[in-house]
Design a protein around this nucleic acid. Structure first.
Length: 414
DNA sequence: TCTGGGGTCCTAGGACCC
DNA sequence: TCTGGGGTCCTAGGACCC
């Protein structure tokens, strides 16, 4: 990490909602929420009423009776998010995208070409507004952590530059909740010992903090509180796992329900993996009961898998192990599958013998070869006619489940 | 406030090996 | 006989982020 403020954190403001307001001028200046059953994003006008992402639509309407709900233009979000972040590429190759609407960039060494970091940040903001049509806030500082906090302070539609000489002064009056890694649980614990600001955390004796949060966590937070953040820009981040989940409302523990849901989830994950010639060795399932208590269970296989049928069977085994261990639970509210220990397969055919190897665990099931061929055939049909054209029976999910377009946006590049 | 879906990382404890 | 120490892998759970 250098000794000058050269890290930019660029963050599109209320991204989905801003896109909707750009596309439809009648939505500008009024409180809107993208979504329906669940609020996926809220405009600043809606946030003023306390409406937040993740909030049930009904609750949002209570807080803000005039709230307008709009369906999402998910393909547009992807296109416009890409376009905005791409503008950073014009200033430095050191760009780290961390979500659809957010990225870090390090402009150290490009000052002779484009001017000081603050000037670059202003240019980025102006260009995103002019070329993409969206407001974006930018923080500039010496470390990633501080740049990210600065962009939050800059919102909405602002710029915040933190010079090295004033770092701690800037940081110490801010609430601890702005720090990376301090969520509701940690925030509540800290409040319990009277620590509300980053400065108060910095002033807390190390031992007290360790007793509260453990050695590792307190070391990390103390470092951040003194703006010692060692993280560098990482330009190529690959996903380490791929998963899917489905909220079920309140479903009785029933073999048909479980099998149908898991097949659907395995199908989503399997087709994503196969599209990138990836497969994974560890299958983790998560079962959430009616009271929202969740249990996970995992198995690591001898060979990596990506076939939908095999994934579904392994997951089904694991889920029943969980359910057998909790016979008192009669309803489930969510099922999830995740595949990790991902590896890339140089040749897709590699999956054939691997499929066979895995099949050996399960006498009596269909042969791996025919499954692999069936998956490939299905992938091809979908390639031509779309994902919905063919597949395993629709998941009997809750009426609140989010649009597929939203799920896809959240998927990380494998 | 009991609420969706996709992820990441950390920790503690146990199994197993040398 | 139960006595050492370190490394790696795996699993479950928790917290966090967008």
């Amino acid at each position: 990490m250098g000794d000058a403020a050269t890290i930019l954190h660029a963050d599109l403001d209320a991204f989905y909602a801003s896109v909707e307001q750009m596309l439809d001028p009648t939505l500008r200046g009024i409180p809107i929420a993208v979504g329906g059953g669940v609020v996926l994003a809220a405009s600043y006008e809606a946030k003023a009423f306390g409406v937040r992402g993740g909030m049930p639509g009904r609750r949002a309407k209570e807080l803000c009776p005039q709230l307008r709900f709009v369906g999402g233009h998910f393909a547009e979000y992807q296109r416009l998010g890409d376009a905005a972040i791409r503008i950073l590429d014009d200033f430095t190759p050191l760009v780290e995208r961390i979500s659809i609407d957010e990225a870090f960039a390090d402009v150290a060494g490009t000052a002779h070409l484009f001017g000081a970091p603050a000037a670059i940040a202003e240019t980025v903001r102006r260009r995103v507004r002019a070329e993409v049509g969206l407001p974006i806030s930018v923080g500039v500082a010496r470390t990633k952590h501080l740049a990210k906090i600065a962009s939050q302070v800059a919102k909405p539609d602002g710029l915040c530059v933190v010079e090295p000489a004033t770092e701690l002064e800037f940081l110490h009056d801010l609430p601890v909740g702005l720090m990376w890694g301090v969520g509701p649980a940690t925030e509540a614990r800290l409040a319990g010992i009277g620590v509300k600001t980053i400065g108060q955390m910095a002033a807390t004796p190390r031992q007290s903090l360790e007793k509260l949060l453990g050695v590792a966590a307190s070391d990390k937070l103390r470092a951040l509180a003194f703006n010692r953040d060692p993280r560098a820009i990482v330009t190529d981040r690959r996903a380490r796992s791929a998963g899917a989940q489905s909220a079920l409302g309140r479903k009785p523990v029933d073999p048909q329900v479980v099998r149908g849901a898991l097949l659907h989830l395995a199908d989503r994950i399997g087709s994503r993996l196969r599209a990138k010639s990836m497969s994974g060795r560890t299958v983790t399932v998560r079962v959430r009961f009616a009271d929202l208590r969740a249990v996970t269970h995992a198995a690591t296989l001898d060979a990596p898998v990506s076939a939908t049928g095999i994934l579904a069977e392994v997951a089904e085994d694991l889920v029943w192990q969980v359910l057998d261990q909790h016979p008192e639970e009669r309803f489930i509210s969510l099922l999830a599958i995740a595949v990790s220990h991902l590896e890339r397969q140089a040749v897709l055919q590699l999956e054939l013998p691997l499929g066979f190897a895995d099949e050996a665990r399960r006498p009596g099931s269909k042969r791996g070869a025919s499954r692999w061929l069936a998956d490939r055939a299905m992938d091809k049909v979908r390639g031509r006619f779309g994902w919905e054209a063919i597949g395993y029976g629709a998941v009997s999910g809750s009426s609140r489940s989010v649009p597929d377009g939203f799920r896809e946006l959240a998927e990380k590049e494998l």
